[in-house]
């Protein structure tokens, strides 16, 4: 029970994740003094921004009590779409964003319909969807994506304000604020929360719970679709399945932030801090120049330790 006491004294999980991120940053600065710079901060913020798009969508789906393993694949696919359609033409930016969001929404709607109405486990359906999307990318790009996003779009994302705030971060924050307002202020958000917390109670109170669940996947897909476009703008060079690793990272970020995988009660601040924490950790590992194998081991061990401290399931006897 010592862990419980410690947890109570250190406050909420979300604050803890932020403190951990700051601590990691300073530890990194001690080990590598040259890494203590505004550039490092900017790198953390920019990388966090991209992951935040993925984790926001993931958070919506996890709130509904499900999980979305196709987040990364949707991002990769819309990123390929973006560079293929845009091909350097800035006038195409708005259409591309709309197409990508619509594509993500459609894929998510398919996922949601399968999970809510056909009762296929979310884990499986979204996993299958993810592999289908991965096999789909080389078909329409022809082996590998050749196009690029427009110069202006890429610059808008990488421009630095005050020396350390990337433009990307500002857009990500605006996006995140809109999503949080949507989830906290609208009827849909409140209903989603209830559906995730207790599906049966939601049905009994007259909520069309299946439709709410289905839409959660669709919104998650939409956000991932948008994430793919900005990801393409941020990365510039793309391959097939560029963002596939963001699936598990987004789940880890949401969970480290304090949202339970069992559904309901999302931690909005936590998703943000969990994302920053995960990105700081990977920057920390690459800055202190550890070899790739060691980096993998530390990453895995940290994930397990964080989960042991913060996200244990209630015991069966409780």
């Amino acid at each position: 029970m010592n862990v419980r006491k410690l947890q109570a004294t250190l406050g909420s999980t979300s604050v803890m994740a932020l403190l951990l991120a700051v601590a990691l940053f300073f530890l990194m600065s001690i080990l590598r003094p040259e890494a203590f710079s505004l550039t490092s901060v900017a790198t953390v913020l920019a990388n966090s921004s991209l992951l935040l798009f993925a984790s926001t969508g993931q958070m919506v789906v996890i709130t509904s009590g499900g999980i979305d393993l196709s987040t990364g694949a949707i991002m990769s696919t819309t990123a390929c779409l973006a560079v293929e359609i845009m091909n350097g033409n800035h006038a195409m930016l708005v259409p591309v964003i709309l197409i990508s969001m619509a594509f993500g929404f459609a894929v998510g709607l398919l996922n949601g319909a399968g999970v809510a109405y056909a009762k296929i486990p979310a884990l499986i359906l979204t996993l299958c969807m993810s592999t289908v999307l991965t096999k789909f990318q080389p078909i329409f790009t022809g082996a590998y994506p050749r196009g690029t996003v427009s110069q202006q779009f890429a610059e808008a994302l990488s421009r630095r304000y005050l020396g350390f705030v990337p433009g990307f971060f500002i857009y990500a924050m605006a996006f995140y604020a809109i999503v949080v307002l949507f989830l906290t202020r609208t009827q849909y958000g409140a209903r989603l929360n209830l559906v995730g917390t207790n599906f049966a109670a939601a049905v009994l109170s007259g909520i069309r719970a299946k439709r709410i669940t289905m839409l959660a996947y669709a919104f998650g897909g939409l956000m991932a679709g948008l994430g793919g476009v900005v990801g393409a703008g941020y990365f510039r060079q793309l391959q097939i399945a560029t963002f596939d690793s963001y699936t598990m990272q987004s789940i880890a970020a949401v969970v480290i932030g304090g949202t339970m995988l069992s559904g309901g009660k999302p931690s909005y601040f936590g998703t943000f801090t969990g994302t920053v924490m995960l990105i700081t950790l990977s920057l920390f590992l690459s800055t202190i120049n550890t070899a790739v194998p060691i980096r993998n081991i530390i990453m895995g061990a940290m994930l397990i330790v964080l989960l042991i401290i913060y996200n244990r399931r209630p015991a069966v006897r409780q």
Partner: peptide, 27 residues
Amino acid sequence: VLVGVFRIPPMLSTYGMSFIIRGVNLL
């Protein structure tokens, strides 16, 4: 042990484990 004793969701604990093993393999 991680799933049973520490009650971490199996999907995440085994995902973490896969990172550790990957590192060991590469070592």
